[in-house]
Amino acid sequence: MPSLNPYLSFKNQARDAMAFYQDVFGGDLDISTFGEYEGMVQDPSENDLVMHSQLTSPDGFVLMAADTPSGMEYRAPAGMSVSVSGDDEAALQGYWDKLSESGTVVMPYDTPPWGGKFGMLTDRFGIDWMIALDAPES
């Protein structure tokens, strides 16, 4: 069965960002560097940059990321958000609390007109997130 997973691009911050997301979501983090594969970067000082990383959380989330080496154009994320939603109020509140540390709250995590809870933030690595607690069924 196919899957759809966010793949984040960073400029020299993928390792720190993915370690942060592992702290937020838990799970197993696998990291491969450019230096593990001959000829992947032109500048040997970039050998320790992340070529590919994958975080698989106990809840089944899969988040991937890589650094952008100097031989490629880096574009900061824009026009998209990673959304986490569901009915586990404690888990979602925990994700919100950790992601918002040293980040910027765009819309506080609170009760919107449609019920439940909803908030938007930009984390310390410049990634936009939306956290949504499902409204209780009537």
Score class of each variant (00 low, 15 high):
98 K>E: 04
35 G>A: 15
25 F>T: 04
75 R>W: 04
114 W>Y: 12
14 A>P: 09
79 G>P: 03
96 W>F: 10
67 D>A: 11
115 G>M: 00
131 I>A: 04
108 P>K: 02
69 P>K: 02
84 V>K: 00
116 G>A: 06
52 H>N: 15
16 D>K: 04
28 D>T: 10
116 G>I: 04
56 T>G: 07
32 S>E: 13
91 A>L: 05
46 E>C: 06
56 T>Q: 06
109 Y>F: 15
29 L>Q: 03
44 P>S: 13
46 E>H: 08
69 P>R: 06
2 P>D: 13
43 D>V: 10
74 Y>R: 06
49 L>N: 13
53 S>V: 08
42 Q>E: 15
73 E>P: 06
55 L>P: 04
55 L>R: 01
115 G>I: 00
127 I>W: 07
80 M>P: 07
94 G>M: 03
45 S>A: 11
136 P>I: 07
10 F>C: 03
70 S>N: 13
22 Q>L: 05
104 T>N: 11
56 T>E: 07
5 N>L: 15
47 N>K: 08
119 G>D: 09
128 D>Y: 10
8 L>R: 09
35 G>Y: 11
60 G>K: 02
4 L>T: 14
13 Q>K: 10
9 S>I: 09
60 G>E: 08
33 T>F: 12
70 S>Y: 04
40 M>T: 14
126 G>L: 03
6 P>K: 06
11 K>L: 15
76 A>P: 14
59 D>R: 12
37 Y>A: 15
47 N>I: 03
53 S>A: 13
56 T>A: 13
81 S>M: 11
123 D>Y: 02
39 G>F: 04
112 P>V: 01
134 D>R: 01
126 G>N: 01
28 D>F: 10
126 G>I: 01
10 F>T: 01
103 G>Y: 08
110 D>M: 14
67 D>H: 08
123 D>S: 02
136 P>W: 04
114 W>T: 05
136 P>Q: 08
112 P>K: 04
9 S>D: 07
42 Q>C: 14
92 L>A: 10
17 A>Y: 00
